[in-house]
Amino acid sequence: MDKSKKNISYYNKGFLVIILFLLIWECVVRLNWINDLVLPLPSKIFYEGGNLLSNSKFYSNFFSTLTNWSVSFVIGMFLGLAIGFISGLNSKFEQLILPITAFFRSVPPIALFPVFLILIGPGKLPIIVAGILGVIIYVFPIAHQSAETIKNKYQDLGHILKLSKYDFIKKIILPGTLINSFVSSRIAASYLFAVCIGGEIIIGGRKGIGAAILEYSEKYQLEEAYFYILIAGLLGLTLDLVISKFQNSFSLKQ
């Protein structure tokens, strides 16, 4: 079976579990086993969610998070690939860059939010910067190792094909590194999504799904807060599906 179809069918089965979970949740609250002041009814969450969907503010929050994610992902992928690629080919650059990346790998970007907040100020920018850092941390070692492995594996073939150094990099090392890195980008994408939502909550921006969760929680409008949490999960799931489809189309070429 096609891998992407397999993934979707796996998700289909998973959706049944989610529906079952929501049904149990509805029953537990309706039977007053848990107070609805603590855990609102799913039916009420969806009702309030319907109201939110008719408000333009919802879309502004939704697209704000999506924009933060997209910008961080594109820039982070580009930088992670570039730094990893160069360090995989150049041992002097590798010596310079490895300790710094090892240092940042040990510090989660969320822990750097307060620093970015002081350095950059509130708004989208500290979230995007932390997101970029998060993506680089994941993509850099993959790109680094891919470039190094491909260089070593195919340098004899490059010699036989009489490829110049430039052509060897352009025709062999670069495409191989890109494919390997894209295939491995799924974890970076999921992690980045968590960083974006977390950033919007911690930094307390005005827009974004995280900011909305914080805002409605502070107002004790739990139905709306829970609805935004569901939307965050659905958006994360959709992005994961899109990337897994993209990933599968490349995995054969790995």
Partner: peptide, 26 residues
Amino acid sequence: FIFQMVEQNLIPWKNCINNILIPFES
């Protein structure tokens, strides 16, 4: 050159026909 390690002979992101034609491309 036909290398001992089969993986060294073929580029994984090129299909078979393009792998055969690599010398022309290079």
